[in-house]
């Protein structure tokens, strides 16, 4: 295994985060803080508790998940798209690194950044809302698993995209609506039956539900199903990445 190669890619990507700390860390932290202020403190204080959890605390897992998903996709897609755009991808393609090592470097760095960001947001949330974590191990496991899965998804988008617009389309047009409709601000039990059924086709429901369970022990769907769905999505992303490298799709002509 070319560990030096993996380390080089990983370090390069982490250095990019440091260079763009305003965009990578500060911007999502500020955005999420605004959510906490508006929905958690201001509006939340006038809303009733959901399953005996204050509204402000109830939305924390969903808001962390929103940032985690968006940043995982954004970091990983940008990480692989930029070398394609600037042409420096030639160096990675001609280096003695395997496909798995390339993915490990780029996706590992993107997931690390997202996990760091998730933890920062959780710490920030503490300034606005009082919350607790019932299952810290599972909370961290969900955090890492989701970061890795959606970084892989972002990696796929970065390879697929042939312009900056396409990099933004999936996070803005697909992921954001799915997160907002996936139970970030409400329990899907609060929806009419037909919308509850439709919501079960939204994969983000399972992520938020599982993550919320790790915090408060309450969930919209069984935690086992949440873990299972996340692993299925992870496997689908891995299979797609494997196919990309096998065929050279948009990488090698």
């Amino acid at each position: 295994m070319n560990l030096y190669g993996v380390r080089a890619i990983y370090k390069f990507e982490m250095a990019r985060m440091r260079r763009t700390i305003m965009q990578s860390v500060l911007a999502p932290v500020i955005t999420t803080s605004l959510y906490f202020v508006v929905f958690g403190s201001a509006i939340g204080s006038r809303m009733g508790a959901i399953e005996n959890i204050s509204y402000g605390a109830y939305i924390i897992p969903g808001l962390v998940m929103l940032s985690l998903l968006m940043q995982s996709i954004s970091n990983a897609s940008f990480g692989i798209y930029m070398p394609k755009f600037s042409g420096t991808i030639y160096e990675v393609l001609s280096a003695p690194v395997s496909y798995a090592e390339i993915v490990l470097g780029y996706v590992g760095a993107a997931a690390t950044k997202s996990v760091i960001l998730g933890v920062i947001i959780l710490i920030t949330a503490r300034f606005f809302v009082d919350y607790h974590v019932l299952h810290p191990f599972w909370m961290l496991s969900f955090l890492v698993l989701t970061a890795v899965t959606f970084s892989l998804f972002g990696f796929i988008i970065g390879i697929w995209a042939d312009g900056f617009e396409k990099l933004q389309i999936v996070p803005m047009m697909v992921v954001t609506p799915l997160v907002f409709l996936g139970g970030t601000f409400y329990s899907i039990d609060m929806l009419p039956q037909v919308w509850q059924t439709i919501s079960l086709f939204n994969p983000v429901v399972y992520l938020i539900s599982g993550f919320r369970w790790a915090f408060y022990g309450v969930s919209d769907v069984h935690v086992g199903i949440s873990v299972g769905m996340t692993v299925v999505f992870l496997a689908a992303c891995m299979a797609t990445v494997w196919w990309i490298f096998k065929t050279g799709y948009r990488l090698r002509s």
């Binding site: 030096y4 190669g5 080089a8 280096a95 690194v97």
Partner: peptide, 13 residues
């Protein structure tokens, strides 16, 4: 950094 990156990428300490 750019030159060191290339060395690492090619598997050299």
């Amino acid at each position: 950094d750019a030159v060191s990156f290339s060395r690492g990428l090619f598997g050299k300490p």
